[in-house]
Design a protein around this nucleic acid. Structure first.
Lengths: 218, 218
DNA sequence: TAGATTGTTAATCGATTAACAATC
DNA sequence: TAGATTGTTAATCGATTAACAATC
């Protein structure tokens, strides 16, 4: 079904947004859309949309446009959202809890199997139907249950320790909220990094630049 | 001090990482580094590092390298981390609370002035030393206090409503965790988007692609 | 058939890497 | 001075946009 060209990361990063817009169209009962119309809706170029969607094969029809439900399904398949990758979350602090409550794992292709923390005060307590396990049990657990992905919601040093255990147990997918650089040490993994502090710095940088250029105009 | 070329977003996104590595070097008492050595440490190319740092003027010295503390200070200045931009947080749910507890605003150039929510059960309760205010008071508040940035930790629909109020009150900086697309409507703002659900989808996509290419090899 | 719109190729733009003269 | 390493220009690579033939 899908072409065998490898998809560039620039394209991959745009896919979730396409997915969201197509879901909305579908929910609004719109069954057909042209690259031009979608481009206007999304603030992108029609050319880019056609290029992007063509990475996976010709889903459109000349003179007609794209079939929304069909395109949506294809996109789900490409993203792999119908998967049930087994996942564990490490670090049930503020961030971990927020992720746990805020993110819909199942609709993004993941099944959360367990939560680990090293804080004795919260070990054995329940969160979202899962009992928080002791981090010391991580190695044994991962050798029993095949885990596809780990969500690292812990500080840099702990992340480093835990990553080593996880990698040795065969875990190759990481959603990494720490500043520990997984890809520097492990080359055959997939790591998606979310650096909140960096993101806020970027905002600060942009605001600052904005101010400076405004002042320069005066 | 800084050159007046506008810095490309690709460069801006790398700055926080430079900042982190330089801080670490500084804390380890290393006062001098060459682009080559830094490149190895960071997994980048020496050429890129020299290009990036040169956007802001020549901080290095031929035959010597870069002075770490000096470069660190320059970078802080460029990022604007010495600013005290006034900020408010909207939405004190799980995500908002995690941000509140997990992110160090002050060291990223922001001063958190207030927190708003519309849930009567938590209004007037205290969080991190700030009393949660009623969202209905947002307009009045922002007309009294000049706010530089808003952190939107609320669902899409609420984000849309609140953004309108904020924009009308002159707020131009946004750290946006919702799926509401601020930049589509407002063009003279600075918006830094963090889409956790999209990020997880990207991970799912990469894992899926990985599997497929592994299977294809067999 | 004529109009619309894709798939795809070619042209442009921007970002990264390589090379090297300048200079500490 | 000689060696090292930057700042900067040139070459390459990749991503985006434009154009248009194919075709529904």
């Amino acid at each position: 079904m899908s072409k065998n060209k490898k998809i560039s990361m620039s394209v991959v990063r745009r896919l979730p947004r396409y997915y969201r817009f197509l879901l909305e169209l579908k929910n609004n009962g719109i069954y057909r859309i042209s690259s031009q119309a979608l481009a206007e809706k999304m603030g992108a170029s029609a050319s880019q949309i056609r290029q992007d969607l063509n990475c996976f094969g010709g889903f459109g029809q000349q003179g007609y446009g794209y079939d929304v439900p069909k395109l949506f399904d294809e996109l789900s398949g490409i993203l792999g959202l119908d998967s049930r990758y087994s996942a564990i979350l490490l670090g049930a602090g503020n961030l971990g809890r927020a992720i746990l409550n805020h993110v819909d794992f199942a609709s993004r292709g993941f099944e959360l199997k367990a939560v680990f923390d090293k804080n004795p005060e919260i070990i054995d307590s329940t969160i979202n139907g899962l009992t928080i396990m002791n981090s010391d049990e991580l190695y044994d657990y991962c050798n029993q249950v095949k885990i596809d992905a780990a969500f690292l919601c812990l500080p840099k040093d702990s992340a480093e320790q835990m990553a080593d255990i996880l990698y040795n147990c065969g875990v190759r997918g990481f959603w990494n909220f720490s500043h520990y650089d997984l890809s520097m040490k492990y080359s055959d993994i997939v790591a998606e990094n979310v650096h909140l502090n960096d993101s806020l710095m970027t905002l600060c940088c942009c605001i600052t630049e904005n101010r400076r250029s405004e002042n320069a105009e005066d």
